[in-house]
């Protein structure tokens, strides 16, 4: 099981999502992706997409206006 962290701090809305989508494609089942974001909009659409795609998702607010979206690839 691998844990991959991608740094999307300072990236505007669609960028964290697209990065996470691409990264997730090359990962194995059971791997965990941690996406660091500070764009409140991505905090909404990234978990939403990952959930509808069927992955396990958690959002941690690590600081004011900074989040870590933890995605476990399940399929």
């Amino acid at each position: 099981m691998q844990e991959i962290v991608i740094d999307c701090l300072g990236e505007a809305c669609p960028v964290p999502l697209v990065k996470a989508q691409n990264k997730l494609k090359e990962m194995n089942i059971g791997d965990i992706l941690i996406c660091q974001i500070d764009h409140s909009c991505a905090m909404k659409n990234l978990p939403e997409w990952a959930r509808t795609d069927g992955h396990n998702v958690e959002v941690d607010e690590v600081d004011d206006g900074e989040w870590e979206v933890v995605i476990e690839k399940v399929k």
Binding site: L17, V18, N45, E48, W49, T52
Partner: peptide, 8 residues
């Protein structure tokens, strides 16, 4: 954008 990007 999201209908295309995420399907949501």
């Amino acid at each position: 954008r999201d209908p295309y990007l995420t399907g949501g």
